[in-house]
């Protein structure tokens, strides 16, 4: 294994793991407390309801967008072929 592709894979793994943990925390830990979140109001919605109906979905989209951006940068940095 070449050292450069080693580093590439290490950084990919770290990025994947970070975003995955973020995803798990938002999806499962935060939702455990949806009842409590509902005491707050956001844009006329109870917060817990809003997060589940819209907020989380937009965050999911942002996670994928950020991952793609970072991966493009890593691809360029390590000269990884794209075909």
């Amino acid at each position: 294994m070449k050292p450069s592709s080693d580093a590439y894979w290490r950084q990919t793994k770290r990025l994947t793991l970070t975003l995955l943990v973020l995803w798990i925390v938002l999806t499962f830990v935060m939702n455990w407390f949806a009842r409590e979140f509902n005491d707050f109001t956001f844009l006329d919605f109870p917060l817990g309801f809003y997060m589940d109906a819209q907020g989380l979905l937009l965050i999911y989209l942002a996670i994928i967008w950020y991952y793609n951006r970072r991966m493009r940068q890593l691809d360029a940095k390590y000269g990884i072929e794209d075909k």
Binding site: W23, F49, D52, Y60, I63, I64, Y67
Partner: peptide, 24 residues
């Protein structure tokens, strides 16, 4: 009601797993 939102989250959240773990 709120309980049904599990479908909304589940059917969209899965794509984060597709993006990070499988598709590329």
């Amino acid at each position: 009601g709120h309980q049904g939102l599990a479908y909304v989250i589940g059917w969209t959240g899965g794509f984060v797993l597709v993006a990070l773990l499988l598709a590329p």
